[in-house]
């Protein structure tokens, strides 16, 4: 029985290891320092990099986080505070449904509400659609973390004459902070890998752009463009971009662990 479980565990880890090894092998040859710092070059012109996509992903994901982080945390607080009331159930149901909506549908939706009125693709639209994708992840993970905070802390704060909102802001959210941060990281990692909704929103841009109002390149969208191209060197660049994406997501995860670990050590506890 335990042997079977062990085998299952091995089978679960295998794809991850396989993907990492494969992408590293395929991507490493094209991965030079220039690749990180240069703009793309036309087909056949040697060199060229993906700095525009790295910056673009940072901008769109950052914007998504800026929109979904605070809103999602507030929604989670509201849902936790009203867990026993009907509104809590409604929020939970709505959140689950939202997380089930395919990202391409979210893309079309953002296209309708942002791109059409503006009459052009933009980083803004990309950030908005990523916010939609991140929102349910943030809400659910934050809610789970807030539920783990002992109710005795809430009582302690209220008994000192703290208002409910202060209790959430000063005690309960900080107590769950490590977990909330991990949830935000998950959301970022998920959003950073979205290509489909970018087709309708950020659209891509071969030049450097930092404007929210202009189309912008992103890493997953760049992978898509390069991968479907008929050119050998572009396909190599697709693998290299994929490797960069994986490394960035991994680095974010490690950084989050480091930050939360430091906090936990400082407080002598891991609030998880």
């Amino acid at each position: 029985m335990l042997g079977l479980a062990g085998l299952a565990a091995f089978l679960a880890v295998l794809p991850l290891a396989w993907i990492i090894v494969y992408v590293t092998q395929a991507g490493l040859p094209a991965l030079t320092l220039d690749f990180f710092t240069n703009l793309p070059t036309p087909v056949g012109v040697p060199g060229g990099g993906i700095i525009n996509a790295i910056v673009g992903s940072a901008i769109t994901v950052g914007l998504g986080l800026l929109l979904a982080g605070p809103v999602g945390t507030l929604v989670a607080i509201y849902a936790t505070a009203n867990a026993e009331r009907p509104i809590g159930t409604v929020i939970r149901f709505a959140t689950d449904t939202l997380s089930g909506v395919p990202s391409i549908v979210m893309g079309i939706f953002a296209y309708t509400i942002v791109v059409l009125p503006q009459r052009h693709f933009s980083a803004l639209a990309g950030g908005v659609v990523l916010a939609f994708i991140m929102l349910p992840i943030v809400i659910r993970s934050t809610e789970e973390m807030l539920k783990l905070v002992p109710s005795s802390l809430r009582e302690a704060s209220l008994a000192l004459g703290a208002a409910e909102w202060r209790t959430w802001r000063n005690v309960l959210v900080p107590a769950a902070w490590n977990g909330i941060l991990t949830g935000l990281m998950l959301a970022v990692a998920r959003a950073a890998g979205e290509a489909a909704p970018m087709l309708f929103t950020a659209f891509g841009n071969p030049f450097m752009s930092v404007s929210l109002d202009q189309p912008i390149a992103t890493l997953p969208h760049t992978i898509y463009i390069y991968a479907i191209s008929p050119y050998e060197d572009w396909r190599a660049k697709a693998w290299a971009t994929a490797l960069v994406l994986i490394i960035l997501v991994l680095a974010l995860n490690v950084a989050a662990r480091y930050v939360t670990g430091r906090r936990a050590r400082k407080l002598g506890t891991v609030t998880r």
């Binding site: 002992p150 005795s152 802390l153 009582e155 302690a156 704060s157 209220l158 008994a159 000192l160 004459g161 703290a162 000063n170 005690v171 900080p174 107590a175 407080l267 506890t269 609030t271």
Partner: peptide, 26 residues
């Protein structure tokens, strides 16, 4: 009312903050 009538609970429930911040909270 809660400010004038404080309460100590059965199980110690300090905030996961420093000693200083616990006392300074109120």
């Amino acid at each position: 009312v809660r400010r004038r009538i404080g309460m100590v609970f059965q199980r110690p429930n300090p905030f996961p903050k420093s000693i200083y911040d616990n006392v300074a909270y109120g």
